[in-house]
Design a protein around this nucleic acid. Structure first.
Ligand SMILES: [Mn+2]
Ligand SMILES: [Mn+2]
Ligand SMILES: [Zn+2]
Ligand SMILES: [Zn+2]
Lengths: 144, 144
DNA sequence: AAACAAATTTGTAATCATTATAAATTAATA
DNA sequence: TATTAATTTATAATGATTACAAATTTGTTT
């Protein structure tokens, strides 16, 4: 899906974030790529379009978006952070075989967590790990 | 709580893991310290007792325990891994103010995740973040 | 027990994601 | 236009984790 850069710039302005070329393009990129990209992937994909782009800018911008509540951080990988622009609460499943990260609907807000009476809950993350259907089928084939 | 080293050694033997001094002490440490310690903390706490201990050994041993299903990995911090010897499914709450990580009971296995039909789920992690009751009270005081 | 082989531990170096820093560039203001 | 503030950029530093090979310990065979 192609996202309007003007719309995206306006969205940033409304949040009092100055809409620089880099910020607008990174935000638009996040809206077009819902695959939970890493900083590395964002940088590699945008670098051809914005030759001057620095990886530091991608880091800075993501941290800025994070503080502004525009993106959420996924700590599902051991070594690197992924980002998600879908802010509505949902779960993430990581396939240990192909590495893909799937979204799934889950009513985590309704969860009874009686042990947390008196706690202020700001973020809820649900991470599942295992094998996706496609990889499972391939494994069955291999076993034959 | 003081954990028997003989019992711990036997437990390792039963899993075909040779019970070296380092492994036994690290496993006993995990049973005595349910605070989700990092490699750094485990090393710092055990180093006085085992002067020859290397941090590499702590890393190797935790990875060994992980593969053997003796401990679980917590990815609740952005930069470093924590370990938990309590294998029964439960949630983790991290206080953004004091950094403490609390356990809470949650029936995650019963969760309806219809989007995951056909997926093989091996691990379920639930991470909540916010402010613990103690820190919340302190903040109220500060505001006065 | 001595000799040999395998497993484990250890110290050091390498890797790699992220952050710190300061100069360079761009945008806003006077 | 001159001045100032914000942003971007390149480079260096940080820090957790892993790779590696030598040293040590443990187990097995003569
Ligand atoms: Mn998502
Ligand atoms: Mn726990
Ligand atoms: Zn897969
Ligand atoms: Zn707290």
């Amino acid at each position: 899906m192609k996202i309007s850069l003007e719309e995206t710039a306006k969205e940033l302005s409304e949040r009092n974030i100055r809409p620089s070329i880099q910020r607008v393009r990174i935000l638009a990129y996040m809206k077009e790529n819902l695959c939970h990209p890493t900083v590395e992937k964002i940088y590699n994909d945008l670098h051809p379009e914005i030759p001057s782009l620095s990886k530091t800018t991608v880091y800075n911008t993501l941290n800025l978006f994070l503080a502004a509540g525009l993106v959420r951080m996924l700590n599902i990988e051991e070594n690197e952070i992924r980002y998600d622009i879908v802010m509505k609460t949902h779960g993430h499943f990581k396939c240990e075989s192909c590495g893909e990260i799937f979204n799934f609907r889950i009513n985590i807000d309704d969860f009874p967590a009686d042990d947390l009476n008196g706690f202020t809950i700001k973020d809820r993350d649900v991470y599942f790990k295992g094998v996706c259907p496609k990889c499972r089928k391939e494994k069955v084939k291999e076993a034959e």
